[in-house]
């Protein structure tokens, strides 16, 4: 049995609607809120019902035209490079505070350009380091936006 991408999406939204609706019932209320026409829960509960109904309709109604099987849309794509870039973004988020703007940004750009296939180190370094320093200069020196040096440098300085 195959599942079209539209139906698969609808199924995910149905699950989301149920989970969201269950969580909505745990939103705290003030004493006496039960008598109010509108509380912090009203909108989320209404949204969970609406999403549930619409996703159910999408799931059971016949489709206008045949769409691709859900698994086929994920095949034949350049997942390797994309995952490396995603990992680099996570890495950037993790290193921005400890290493500081300059070092983490330069590493991110060097990694990104390398991951996308550039192997000439002169090109990699010339396109990443000046961009990083230039952007830092604009932010820190021209616009006066303070970019803290990395925690690691602060620690080294303290010792």
């Amino acid at each position: 049995m195959t599942l079209s991408k539209e139906k698969a999406g609808a199924l995910c939204f149905l699950v989301l609607a149920i989970a969201y609706g269950m969580e909505a019932r745990h939103i705290p209320l003030f004493p006496g809120d039960e008598l109010e026409p509108f509380t912090a829960r009203t909108m989320p509960i209404a949204l969970s019902w609406l999403t549930g109904i619409v996703s159910f309709l999408l799931l059971v109604l016949p489709q206008r035209e045949e769409t691709d099987d859900i698994f086929s849309v994920f095949r034949g794509l350049n997942w390797g490079k994309t995952f490396v870039l995603i990992a680099l973004m996570v890495f950037y988020g993790l290193t921005l505070s400890p290493l500081g703007f300059l070092l983490s940004t330069a590493l991110f750009l060097i990694g990104g350009i390398y991951a996308l296939g550039e192997r000439r180190w002169s090109v990699i370094l010339l396109s990443s380091v000046p961009a990083t320093v230039g952007f830092w200069f604009i932010l820190d020196k021209l616009l006066g936006i303070y970019l803290a040096p990395g925690e690691i440098f602060t620690m080294l300085g303290a010792n």
């Binding site: 999406g9 939103i27 209320l29 003030f30 509380t39 969970s48 609406l50």
Partner: peptide
Amino acid sequence: LMTLFGLMLSTIGTDQTAGLQRF
């Protein structure tokens, strides 16, 4: 469905009137 998903995302955080936390 996508519109509703956007509305759902907008409910994350502190409810502006009641000041209660949601999701």
